[in-house]
């Protein structure tokens, strides 16, 4: 199962990556090579094996419901490209209203 150029373009969009046409070509080749590696795994017989999401049989790792100090606001906003009124500023999101 090979990925088409359009599929890779779509994946790049979902990952918010801007690729030039050359980079796109390189990615098509690279990702298809990667998928071929995974296809090897399909050969294994996994009948009766439950899908696993985690490597360890460890469950119910939880914390008690207690507050801990938050960061000072200037630290929270330190990475904001723009800030105003204690908020992160982003380009407006059209809601159609």
């Amino acid at each position: 199962m090979a990925l088409s150029r359009d599929a890779v373009r779509q994946i790049a969009l979902l990952a918010r990556l801007e690729l030039t046409e050359e980079e796109l070509d390189a990615q098509v080749e690279h990702m298809n090579a990667l998928l071929a590696q995974f296809e090897k795994l399909q050969e294994l017989d996994v009948t009766g094996v439950e899908p696993t999401a985690h490597a360890f049989p460890v469950y119910n790792v939880m914390r008690e419901d207690r507050c801990r100090p938050s960061l000072p606001r200037e630290v929270v906003l330190a990475n904001a490209p723009e800030q105003r009124a204690g908020c992160f500023v982003v380009p407006s999101i059209l809601e159609g209203a």
């Binding site: 914390r63 419901d65 207690r66 507050c67 801990r68 100090p69 938050s70 960061l71 606001r73 929270v76 906003l77 009124a85 204690g86 908020c87 992160f88």
Partner: peptide, 22 residues
């Protein structure tokens, strides 16, 4: 709850913006 789902920041309505973050 007192605190957020996955961290210890306070879970409450309102408050000064971006003061309950970690």
């Amino acid at each position: 709850t007192e605190s957020k789902m996955f961290c210890g920041c306070q879970n409450a309505f309102g408050g000064e913006p971006n003061t309950r973050c970690c």
